[in-house]
Design a protein around this nucleic acid. Structure first.
Length: 493
RNA sequence: GCGCCCUUAGCUCAAUGGAUAGAGUACUAGUCUUCGGAACUAGUGAUGGGGGUUCGAAUCCCUCAGGGCGCACCA
């Protein structure tokens, strides 16, 4: 990657261990900028300005293969790369990692006691796109859905069905939605199986893919919780108190002999790391479980799994709004908008983009009516429209694309530079999991192309073949971005 | 009471501790009807309050205010 080459050069001439090479906010500040001089200044006792001046001088005299121009401004060093290098680098995505790291990415994992709600879409789309990103950057990713098909809620679902059939008195804690009535006549196991089937259908419709459906009841059949208990007992880490089994402050086995969710979760992670040999586990949870993160991390550490191997991502909750007021979404009360309703109302691409463009930390208020209204203005159409225009140019030209040796108008170079950012975006996101960076990038790429489209006419130009090269690289890149996000690439709109 | 997250333009969101805080939308004024106008260009407009750390803070620390979510022998 070009940025890495540049970084090497800067580290070499500065003698620093590390330096940041970033895209400047304003294009007049270079193709890349580095703050290396600020760190260096402290080390050698010079002012940032002088240090930057020295470094820029060295960069200029080193006869770099990639650097065309280097300027020092107020301590920053702004760098422009050579046009021919830029052109040659387009579309070259070097494999970022060669080491085969096995990651277990667990997401959605909604209880199969009802249909998926639109809020499940958030974690679903996020997990799906994150999996794509990690795969693209060289990880071996398993996409896993953990099915809670054992324990309390299964019994509760069974009783809820009977209550709906009038065979038993209704209780506050029973599931109330319309769907419960449709489960009439089914045993709890049959109901769960049916609901898992429905969940799979919804996910498929949303284009959210899983490789493994991991069943809690199988985990129990395989006696994994017992293994964990034995392990902890051998290490003398558990104690019995009030008829229950405790690990520190947390109960593992209740006084009635039932296992707590904590114990089963520990067994589940034991299974991930020791039975299935994953190098890393990434769990995506809703914010309502955030209080559980510390306990879980400490728990797996006791099992001998380093805390750096378990990454837990908290998605902030989505609140359902109607008429300016919150509607408490609850499977139990039967008040929710299902994921399928959302997909039907606004379309899969819009729904996906809507969730993916936001940081996991954002608290979202969701109003379905407003979403319908706004869906026509969704940026996803802007991006897809740019894509369609690219196709149209490529379709209408009869020439072969040819590598240009230089740029004409400014929008050409702007577009090329934007294309060049793609590998960086991927690499950065594979490290910090900020998936929404990709939607921002997709929009910027579409924007750079739209500006190019307006100012540079390709067909009929005396540089048609060279311009075609740029367009085809833009199209390759945008295709790649959209595929990674899971957004469709329409041929016409 | 304790803990986690959030507060940025009228609205919806960005910004690995970096330069003049960016987009979209809305509003205003233009371009242009082309290789697909679901387009392009420009303008208006913002970091909740107060301290601190730093060459540099929306970002880190403290504090105040407001909002969300957790604090089970539930899952």
């Amino acid at each position: 990657m070009l940025r890495d080459e540049l970084k090497k050069e800067i580290l070499k001439i500065s003698g620093l261990q590390d330096a940041k090479i970033t895209e400047p906010e304003h294009a007049e500040n270079g193709d890349w900028t580095t703050n290396a001089a600020f760190s260096l200044a402290k080390k050698i006792g010079k002012s940032p300005n002088d240090a930057a001046e020295d470094l820029a001088d060295k960069l200029r005299s080193e006869k770099s293969d990639v650097v065309d121009r280097a300027e020092s401004v107020g301590g920053f060093i702004n760098i422009w790369i050579k046009d021919e290098v830029l052109l040659l680098s387009l579309g070259v995505v070097t494999k970022i990692r060669s080491k085969n790291t096995k990651i277990n990415l667990e997401f959605v994992s909604a209880n199969p006691t009802g249909p998926l709600t639109m809020a499940n879409g958030r974690g679903g789309f996020y997990g799906d796109a994150l999996a794509n990103i990690l795969e693209k950057t060289g990880y071996d990713v398993t996409r896993e859905y953990y099915i809670n098909d054992a324990g309390n809620q299964v019994r509760l679902l069974g009783e809820s069905i009977e209550a709906a059939e009038g065979k038993r008195e209704d209780k506050e804690e029973y599931y109330k939605g319309e769907y419960v009535k449709e489960l009439a006549g089914k045993s709890p196991e049959e109901a769960i199986q049916f609901l898992v089937g429905e969940i799979k259908k919804s996910l498929e419709k949303a284009g959210i893919k899983f490789n493994v459906w991991f069943s809690e009841s199988k985990l129990r059949e395989k006696k994994e919780p017992e293994k964990v208990l034995k392990f902890l007992e051998d290490k003398n880490l558990i104690e019995k108190k009030d008829g229950a089994v405790w690990l520190g402050e947390a109960v593992l086995v209740k006084s009635d002999g039932e296992y707590t969710y904590f114990l089963v979760d520990l067994a589940y992670h034991w299974n991930k790391f020791f039975d299935r040999k994953f190098d890393m586990a990434v769990d995506i949870w809703g914010a309502d479980h955030h209080g559980y993160v510390e306990r879980m991390k400490k728990g797996v550490e006791v099992l001998g799994i380093g805390p750096e191997k378990l990454k837990i991502i908290i998605m902030q909750l989505v609140r359902l709004m109607s008429g300016g007021k919150e509607v408490k979404m609850s499977k139990r009360a039967g008040t929710f908008v299902t994921m399928e309703e959302l997909l039907d109302e606004v379309g899969v691409d819009v729904a996906r983009w809507f969730f993916l463009e936001r940081s996991p930390n954002t608290h979202m208020d969701f109003d379905l009516d407003l979403a319908k209204e706004k869906s026509e203005k969704n940026p996803v159409f802007y991006v897809q429209y740019a894509y369609v225009r690219m196709l149209s140019i490529l379709r209408n030209s009869h020439l072969e694309a040819k590598l240009p040796s230089s740029f004409g108008y400014a929008p050409e170079r702007d577009l090329a530079l934007k294309i060049l950012r793609w590998p960086e975006i991927l690499e950065d996101t594979s490290c910090d999991y900020q998936v929404h960076r990709l939607t921002t990038y997709a929009y910027e790429l579409a924007q750079a192309f739209s500006a190019f489209y307006r100012d540079v006419k390709v067909i009929g130009s005396d540089r048609e073949a060279e311009l075609l090269y740029l367009v085809s690289k833009a199209k390759e890149t945008l295709t790649d971005v959209l595929k990674t996000l899971g957004i469709s690439q329409p041929e016409k709109m």
